[in-house]
Design a binder for these strands. Sequence first.
DNA 1: GCAAAATGACTGGATAGTCAGTCAGTAACG
DNA 2: CGTTACTGACTGACTATCCAGTCATTTTGC
Lengths: 212, 212
Amino acid sequence: MPKIAESARAARRDQIIAAGLACFASSGYHATTMADVAEQAGVSKGTPYLYFDSKQALFLAMHERWDCDAGQRANAAIASLPDRERESPRAVLRAVAAAVAAHVLAESQTCRVLMEARALAAYEPVIAAAVRAADARTHEQLQGLYAAGVAAGEWPAGTDPVLAARLFSAGMYGLMAQWHLAPGSFSWPDAADALAATPVPAPGSLPMAGSR
Amino acid sequence: MPKIAESARAARRDQIIAAGLACFASSGYHATTMADVAEQAGVSKGTPYLYFDSKQALFLAMHERWDCDAGQRANAAIASLPDRERESPRAVLRAVAAAVAAHVLAESQTCRVLMEARALAAYEPVIAAAVRAADARTHEQLQGLYAAGVAAGEWPAGTDPVLAARLFSAGMYGLMAQWHLAPGSFSWPDAADALAATPVPAPGSLPMAGSR
DNA sequence: GCAAAATGACTGGATAGTCAGTCAGTAACG
DNA sequence: CGTTACTGACTGACTATCCAGTCATTTTGC
């Protein structure tokens, strides 16, 4: 019944996603027209709608793809660690940070889309849901790492894994934003590694600063 | 010769900026029309163009306004510290972090606009320039604080003030992004304070993690 | 040969920015 | 002081353009 092989259909879908990636990354979501995407993909204006219900649906598909991609990279980085280091949550976290840094350097297009998704999330509930879901998964893994690290004595006792994970992901995201604003203005690997290695004080562990 | 007093003109300008803030914060830059802004301000569709050349110019004016506001808040927070603490760079940094946290909680509208400006900066060179300029100023102050803190022994010797400042601002920005994505999901004051109190390892101070 | 895939002209709606005209406030003049 | 001439702040209908999504038609794969 398939007019074209399943694989051909998937390939065309990928082709459109790739075109969307190129367009959205170089011009942003709003400045990109579906006609741009179609032209970039070398198909007619109607074809993308045979694979995606709407511009937003195409964007969401791309976001999902990036998410899978980044997760695979991180997992590959963990898998490639020597056994000895894979036992150390801190070493794992640093490997993940390094993998993300490498990913940002190698795949700036997909990162642009990730950043844009976050921006769009502020006003588009559907995109917000997708971003939140991706965030929740990342967060869970990070919390697990920090919790294990605290248990192993690699971070100070009393460190709050939830807060630590939040600060780590916030820092990575902020670094990405800075990188896109001023590419090359700092060393990604150094910054990412510093973030992964930084101990996070438990809240209240230091006396509250003065008035305010 | 002006038909209206200079003060009246400034008031009208402010009125339009305020309307823009409300509209851009609630709907975002692209979804907000100049007609929306005009209606919100209670003026006709042509009036905003008597005060701003374009939609983008209006947005830039708002961004500048926020920037001044935030800087003033931070300076006020520093000024209100007891003398003893004002001598301590770390205490100053924590006060600034607390001020920013308070600002985010009290003025979520302006923060939304700041976030959006960063997102727009990816594809709008004029906005990018404005954001970069604001960033550079912030960064300079933070670096000064960290440098003074290292000199005073409040951060570990060898801490790189530039990297530390970058990680702090990245963290604050990332926290803002998380807050907008899931408001109320964490304690801003705690997170901001942890960020300000965190020591940042010098790059290379720890052995590089595994392969890659 | 037929059904699905692809096409591309088309539509309906939206919007940034313009401009000819209105009107309120000011000043100059008698 | 009252009238008139003038100025520029303000208005809102208008235009030129753009674009997401549709659909009748053609092409293609099986």
